[in-house]
Design a protein around this nucleic acid. Structure first.
Length: 994
DNA sequence: ACCGCCGGGTGCC
DNA sequence: ACCGCCGGGTGCC
């Protein structure tokens, strides 16, 4: 008894010490302290000191060790069979400065590591030689000690030091057996014997994933997250815009995530306990549910509208947000034309149904609008009726605002119609005190309806939703509130932004919605004690573009994590950009226990996945699935696309060469045919494949512009091999560049997939570097080129140096002759310019040199254009895209685009015309290019014009395209390498009409 | 803890 | 009896 008490005292003592040191940081901590144990406090402070927490990448398992946890009877933490435990150094322990304490997943202390073992462990842990992890393999029936299985993970170079330190204290590491990590082991069900647990190590396919594979994992991670999420929910009346079916589904899902009592992922109820099947941690109390999740819909599917609907529809107990109704008079004096225009008919009818149609419009909130150039500051005119005293407040506030001489954004339509009239707010005060307002209050009472707030005496806690977003979309949120909140209710939307922002938590807590930016959040957080945003207990926090928050070390991340809320949401079109760590940040924000603590995330998810552990991946997937809704524009609801896009019309325009061009074309064609014919005769088409491609490229380039051939290499016959190694190298670099830029979408003959890290062999065949290296490794000295059986040597592989800016001779010469195809394009561009100068076009070619040629006539005729191709760096790409997407007058109307530039994410919806200057080998590449502008966000029909030169290789390419398309449609894809090879030869034969 | 360890009591078999 | 052995008291770090 005495001991127990004294140890408790010690614990508090420690806690206080930590609170003293880090006490500045938060009310939040104080609130939570009751629930949190010492170790959690310790852990948190740790995180604050080293937020990055050492990277575990490259860590290997040194070995394992059986240790024991002692002193169980002094602590309350319980551990079950197979449960993971955490080992925390406790250097301040007055009895042993080597002390290592053991805590369970929830951070409750279980005991200590026996001192003999703690000594070397302390040394190892303090010097960062290894990370030590514990799993309790079984329980003994004694109440004093329990076994713990320790694994030592660290960098290979530290292995000896760790082994020595342990052996100096008489401990010997056993080779690691992965089965002892609790991850993926599943719940240790009754009957799982100790022996089985120990002697059946999980068979792991533990091959670390390459970055490529990881990328693939992420891509697939968010696939197919729709099943079971197709239930629809009607939005509250206050939502003025009818929701599309997929938005109703999202609403239903979000509401259920907020309301349902489901256990969080990986928790199961077993008898009277709740068990986390990944960590094997069990508790008596039901674990907190995660109220919220990640809405990861593609952009354009209406994440904003859905979120607004959620706010209005799902207040407490599944009821809608109680809002004061107000009249919506269409004849209202204050109305921004834009709003009227944007209104749709169903809204009108909605309004006419309103009980209060005769009443005076009410303004509920006014806030200045950063984008609209007024001083960024906000004034609330009226607050909800929950507070009896509020009735008078509006006038006072309105006055304050007036005295500051600010422009205000006021609303008649629902909450947020904008007004530039600064007198308006003052006038409003009168409105609100007028008879109509009182009448309404009376009416509302008699309705006895949805007033869940204070007046009824039933306190429901938090009311306000905080939305954090990048500044660039803040105005969009305001617009969307204006647009989508029904006219006959008023909603308090407060913008917390600008130097004059009202830093009053009580005031903020009264709002329906508070909008702010990540910057403001971070800035306020710098002075943690007085950050109003941190002081409010939010009903809901929404992180818009949530992927922005991903570096845990960043101030904004800390600020975000320190927000107090019942429900948390992340909105993001791209939730995982490149790393699992990004995802951790989001999981941590959502408070998905126990993964909000980095150690459990690392042990249970991140490391297993990085090591290629299949079950780790499954767990990750299950985790994501449980909290994420993601649909893309290709997702279907009941067989139909979520969103119908505007039409896409494709026209082919046949271009006739001039007599002169024709004559020269035929000459080039004849030479080319002769060479290729010879290859066919000799059966060496594949051995000389790069040359064949080069020849075809020349022909295709000629169709675009004869001048393109001038700089190009002459047909490289097999005779023309280089003599010195350096020349050979240059020759190969040229070849590989040719193959890759030929647009033929070459695939690697080993993996039959598109080329990754392309390399070229001395026999001029291109493969993925990893693929061909593997071939050479396995076949050793006898390795031969899979395509031509030539001897291979790993040292002879030449890598692709990357796209180089080839200085085009044509660009210098201002006097540039036109070509039939260029003329054809210009005709269209002229016509478009006179028709509607605002229409923007993409001019697409596979040949960047052709794009350069096109710049000349465009410049000559005064077209504003920008350019995007693979040789540009990230910065100039972004610049080019932004300039083009800008709708302002004077922005470029044409973008010269190289066919394959940019990833799938490239968004060029500003364009509604596409001119495809030359056909691609692969029709899918063309479609992907068209999708750059024919995608969500495109408002008008897209017209695509493909230029094809009559009687040329281009026509033959189109034929092959169509043939391929049919094969794809019939699901007769190429099956094996032989078929593919053969089909390529056939392609060439058809192209050259041989 | 059905242990280990400590230290006092004890002392042929 | 400056040992061994016995058995009660005791127990994390």
């Amino acid at each position: 008894m005495q001991f127990a008490r004294s140890s408790r005292r010690r614990r508090f003592g420690l806690e206080l010490r930590f609170a003293d040191v880090f006490g500045v940081e938060s009310a939040d901590r104080d609130r939570d302290r009751d629930r949190d144990s010492l170790s959690q406090v310790l852990r948190r402070t740790e995180q604050q000191q080293e937020p990055a927490e050492e990277e575990q990448e490259g860590h290997v398992l040194f070995g394992t060790l059986q240790g024991s946890v002692v002193g169980l009877r002094y602590y309350t933490g319980v551990v079950n069979k197979g449960e993971m435990v955490s080992l925390v150094r406790e250097p301040q322990n007055p009895y042993d400065r080597n002390a290592v304490m053991v805590t369970n997943v929830y951070g409750n202390q279980v005991g200590h590591i026996r001192r003999q073992l703690a000594a070397p462990m302390a040394h190892i842990m303090d010097n960062n030689l290894a990370k030590v992890e514990g799993v309790v393999p079984y329980r003994t029936n004694n109440q004093f000690t329990m076994p713990v299985h320790l694994s030592f993970w660290g960098k290979e170079e530290k292995r000896m030091e760790v082994v020595n330190e342990l052996s100096n204290h008489g401990f010997k590491l056993a080779p690691g057996s992965k089965g002892l990590s609790a991850s993926g082991q599943g719940p240790s069900r009754a009957g799982t014997t100790l022996e089985r647990f120990w002697t059946v190590p999980r068979k792991t396919t533990a091959v670390a994933l390459t970055p490529e594979q990881l990328k693939n994992v992420f891509d697939k991670l968010f696939d197919d997250l729709m099943e079971d999420k197709t239930r629809e929910m009607e939005a509250a009346e206050a939502v003025g815009t009818p929701l599309l079916p997929h938005q109703k589904q999202a609403l239903a899902w979000m509401a259920s995530r907020e309301n349902s009592n489901d256990l969080p992922p990986f928790w199961e109820q077993q008898n009277n306990l709740y068990l986390n099947v990944l960590t094997n941690f069990a508790v008596k109390e039901r674990p907190d549910k995660v109220q919220g999740g990640i809405l990861a819909d593609d952009m354009g599917l209406g994440k904003t509208l859905t979120t607004i609907a959620l706010i209005l529809t799902n207040f407490h107990n599944g009821k809608p947000l109680p809002l004061q109704k107000c009249a919506a008079s269409p004849k209202s004096a204050v109305r921004v034309p834009k709003m009227v225009k944007g209104r749709n008919s169903s809204l009108e009818s909605e309004r006419s149904r309103s009980h209060f149609a005769e009443e005076t419009p009410k303004v509920s909130a006014s806030s200045s609008h950063p984008k609209r150039g007024s001083e960024a500051s906000d004034v609330i005119v009226i607050s909800d009726s929950d507070d009896a005293g509020e009735g008078v407040a509006p006038k006072k506030r309105a006055k304050r605002k007036e005295s500051k001489g600010e422009t205000s954004t006021s609303s008649t339509k629902g909450s947020v119609i904008l007004s530039e009239d600064s007198d308006f707010a003052a006038a409003l005060g009168e409105f609100l005190q007028g008879p109509s307002s009182q009448k309404k209050k009376a009416h509302k009472k008699s309705e006895g309806g949805d007033d869940t707030q204070g007046k009824t005496g039933k306190s429901v806690g938090a009311r306000a939703t905080l939305i954090v977003c990048p500044l660039s979309v803040l105005s969009n949120w305001l617009d969307q509130f204006e647009q989508h909140v029904s006219a006959d209710v008023k909603m308090n939307v407060h913008v917390y932004y600008g130097t004059e922002r009202i830093r009053d938590p009580k005031f903020l807590a009264k709002q329906d919605v508070v909008l702010t930016t990540y910057n403001i959040l971070s800035t306020d957080y710098t002075d943690k004690r007085s950050s109003p945003l941190q002081a409010v207990s939010w009903l809901r926090v929404v992180l818009d573009e949530g992927h922005i928050v991903r570096n845990p070390a960043a101030l904004q991340s800390k600020a975000v994590l320190a927000l107090t809320a019942e429900r948390r949401w992340v909105l993001s079109g791209t939730p995982v950009q490149n790393s699992l760590k990004d995802l951790w940040m989001l999981i941590s924000f959502l408070k998905l226990k126990p993964f909000d603590i980095r150690e459990w995330w690392n042990r249970v998810i991140q490391r297993p996945v990085m090591l290629g552990d299949h079950s780790g991946l499954q767990n990750l997937q299950a985790l994501v699935k449980g909290i994420t809704l993601r649909r893309t524009k290709n997702s279907r609801v009941g067989g139909r696309l979520l969103v119908e896009l505007p039409q896409k019309k494709v026209f082919v325009e046949h271009v006739t060469l001039t007599e002169d061009e024709r004559r020269r074309y035929e000459r080039v064609r004849k030479d080319s045919r002769a060479i290729i014919k010879r290859y066919f005769r000799e059966g060496t088409v594949l051995t000389n494949y790069a040359d064949v491609l080069a020849i075809l490229v020349r022909l295709r380039q000629f169709c675009c512009h004869p001048q393109l051939l001038e700089g190009a290499a002459t047909p490289a016959g097999p005779t023309e091999k280089a003599s010195t190694p350096d020349e050979l190298r240059q020759y190969l670099v040229k070849k590989i560049s040719l193959v890759l830029s030929s647009g033929s979408d070459e695939e690697c003959a080993v993996c039959l997939d598109s080329l990754r890290q392309p390399v070229i062999t001395y026999c001029a065949h291109v493969y993925c570097k990893p693929c061909i290296c593997e071939v050479i490794r396995s076949e050793k000295e006898n390795a031969k080129c899979p395509l031509c059986r030539m001897q291979l040597n790993i040292k002879e592989l030449v890598e692709y140096p990357g796209e180089q800016e080839n200085l085009d001779a044509a660009q210098d010469k201002d006097e540039c002759l036109s070509s039939s195809k260029v003329d054809a394009l210009m005709v269209h561009l002229f016509q478009l310019r006179s028709q509607d100068p605002k229409i923007k076009s993409l001019v697409v070619s596979q040949f960047t040199s052709f794009l350069s040629l096109l710049e000349v006539p465009l410049r000559q005729h005064g077209f504003d254009f920008t350019r995007l191709d693979g040789s540009m760096n990230q910065k100039s790409r972004v610049k080019a895209i932004q300039a083009f997407q800008d709708t302002a007058q004077g922005s470029p109307t044409i973008m010269l685009l190289s066919l394959k530039a940019g990833g799938v994410g490239l968004n060029l919806t500003a364009a509604s015309r596409v001119f495809l200057m030359d056909p691609a080998w692969n029709p899918a590449a063309e479609d992907q290019c068209f999708d750059r502008c024919h995608r969500l966000g495109q408002k008008v029909d897209v017209v695509i014009i493909k230029f094809i030169v009559k009687d040329s290789v281009e026509e033959n390419m189109v034929e092959i395209q169509q043939k391929k398309q049919k094969l794809v449609e019939k699901a007769f894809g190429m099956k094996n390498a032989e078929e593919r090879k053969q089909s390529r030869i056939e392609d060439i034969r058809a192209l050259m009409e041989l």
